[in-house]
Structure formats: C-alpha cells, structure tokens
Amino acid sequence: MTLREVETPPPRQEEGRPPEVVTARHPLRWLGAAVVLVLLAMVVSALVTNPAWEWDVVRQYLFAPSVVRSVLLTLELTVLAIGLGFALGTVLALMRLSPNRLLSAVAWGYVWLFRSVPLILQLLFWYNLALLYPRLSVGVPFGPEFFDFGTMDLIGPLTAAVLGLALHQAAYAAEIVRGGLLSVDHGQREAAAALGLPPARRLFRIILPQAMRTIVPNAGNEIIGLVKGTSVVYIMALPELFYQVQVIYNRNGRVMALLLVAAVWYLVLTTALSIAQHYVERHYGRGRA
C-alpha cells in the first residue's frame, strides 16, 4: 500500500516543492546498540581498573630484547613455512590436475597423509628423524650414494620446525591452489590455447592471476592461522614468541602480563597481515568492477 503511495506522482506538484522523504526509525536497533555499548564499557573498565593485569609489566616486557628476538623467530618460521608450503602446494595442485594418473594419485596421497596426521606429531617426527635414519645420503635408489650426512647435523630444531610446518602447510595450500585453478572459467584456458600461448605463460600470465582472486582470501586465513600455529613448535624448545613468554613467566611469575605481551604481538602481526591481504586482493581484483 505504502509502495503505491510513493510511486504515484504528487497530485498538485505545481503548488509547491516536491514532498521531502523521511527515513523510517529503528528503535530496536538503537536499543541493541545501547546494550552493546554498555557491555563494551564493562570490558574496558575490567581491563583498566583491575591492577592484576599489571599493564606496567606488559609495557616493560613488550619491547624486551628477548621478546623482540622471539617475535622475529616467529616471523621467520611463518615466512619460511608459508613460502615453502605454497611453493610445494602449487606443484602438488598442478600434479593433482595432471592427466597423468600417477602424478595425480601421488598428489592426492600426499594431501591425504599430511592433512590426516596432527601437526604436533609431524613436528616431533621430523625432530626425531635421527632415530629412524641416523645418516642421510643422496644417490640413486638402491644404487650408489653421492653425499652422506649425519641426520642430527642436517636437521636441527629450526630445520625440523620449518620442515614440519611447511610440509603440513603444503597439503592445505595444494587444495587452496587447486580450488583457485578450478575456479577460472574454462573459456580462459581455451582462449589462451587458441592464441598459441606457451604452457608456462598460460599458467602464470592468464590462469594463476585469475585464480588468485579465490586463492588470496583462503591463503590469508592460512597465513594468519600459521602465525599463531607456529606456537606449537615450543615443544621443540625453539625460542619463538610463545615459548619465550613462558620462559619469562616461569622465572618471574607474572603469568597474565606476559601472556598479554604475547597476545599483543600476535594481534600486531595478524593485523599487519590483514591489511596486506586487503591490498593484495585489490591488486588481483583489477578489471572486475
């Protein structure tokens, strides 16, 4: 009824200005907003007024050299694991999509295995690889060997952590990249083929940039997950952020304050990544209104 009234032209327009529009009021929305505002005020008050949070201790340790070093190690682990993980994941995704049955099956098997075993178990496995293979060598399978290493010398805690995180990440990255490649319209492949573009060019210039629109949001999830996920390597006594704050609070007993230090740093890192993701998405969204 009201719709019709709006659509019919005002009856005697020549007599004055056209009628003004008054937007509807939403009292329930206002009420909801007021409730949320009160709750927020309660949270802030609880954080600020309770001295047990020890904000001065937080300030004191936030930029302590050992904490900053541990943040850098967390970053290093994240960057290496994501870089290697997505590189291997892209190869796995391409293998999975290959018409060759063996390549496709091996990629499927990899994803199945590395997604199925808990990360913490994989990390311990790499860490203790020397128990299985005290020496590693490079050579022809069942044939002569060219290089030979002691496993303990080659795979220290840092290498084991990067290896474990990257191989685990690769399984997830493979599925994300595969999903992205499949999301690109088949006509794009055909047009690129019809124009005679070489295979590598088709992939890197035509298909992948379009697949990135689907890949980036999921990859963003994974990267942010991994920043926090690196904290599991504390079991290998690597002084990344989470391990380091534990070391400090075991010494001085300021548990909550130091957990807060870690939380602040994780927030800073993930916020920076979220902002970066926004710009990366905008880059790959060009040409789409």
Partner: peptide, 8 residues
C-alpha cells in the same frame, strides 16, 4: 563468449 582476459 568472447573469452577476453578480464585481468588485462
């Protein structure tokens, strides 16, 4: 369907 490359 034209199949122009939308990102170029």
């Amino acid at each position: 369907a034209f199949n122009l490359f939308p990102h170029l």
